[in-house]
Amino acid sequence: MLRLLNIEFLKLRYSRSSKILILTYFILITFIALIASIEFPIGNMNFRLADQGIFNFPFIWHFNSFIAATLKLFLAIVIVSMMSNEYSNRTLKQNLIDGLSKKEFILSKFITVMVFSIVSTIFLFVVSLILGLSFSDYNEFSIIFSDLEYILAYFVKLTGFFAFCLFLGILVKRSAFALGFLFIWWIVETILYAILKWRIFKGSDIADKIVQFLPLESMSNLVKEPFSRLNAVQTAANQLGSAFEKDYTIHWYQILIVIVWTVLFVYFSYALLKKRDL
């Protein structure tokens, strides 16, 4: 297993574009801290975003994992191209001839993806912890370490998304087209949801129940947008008389759905590679 990781590490290490993207990704995560310094004047009051409670424990776990998750596209580009470049450089063929089995090949890619997710999760945890400790209004130990399931959800979400990228890289074989395909897939899911919600099952929540099983939707369901949880937004909504209730908690079955997709995508990648003549 270490051998496979080593092989993959060598391939990435010398690729300048991959290095730049990976570095950008991690730097951007630290830049979440910059949100703290956003200030804008309302009337003669200075409105500081950090004072709105976004860095309060345990809300910060939710907020930061949502913000950090939007950055995953940077790593997605790296992952899609590390897969499809093996096709365009024909190095996949050479790797197999040199004695790597198809199973090992997929495994080496998946382990790398796992390492990306793990490192990113740890990174997010540390950044959030530091941010929280400097800005949070509550610093009791029990509060700091509550709601940590968002960090777990973040990890599962990232792994699932990257496994999807791997699969697309193998399926489409060209990085640009694979990313395009990812976008199209997202549009299809959105349209499907719209049709189910507003046409077929109008006025009920059956549509949501179905859509939560789709890959991208299930991943985005894991960490829902945190903005409507902010006090300011809640108050504003209350004043407008449209108080809304939303379920922000992470359910075990949501995690399970994403894990199932992850397993399926890795398996499909392997099956596809096994079936193909190179």
């Binding site: 051998r3 190095t91 050479q94």
Partner: peptide, 24 residues
């Protein structure tokens, strides 16, 4: 097989090191 397939962005020595890793 047919034409040589290597990682274009890696040097000759780096490419061969990778093959060493694969072949053990």
């Amino acid at each position: 097989i047919e034409h040589p397939n290597f990682y274009p962005y890696m040097t000759a020595a780096q490419n061969l090191e990778l093959v060493c890793k694969i072949k053990g």
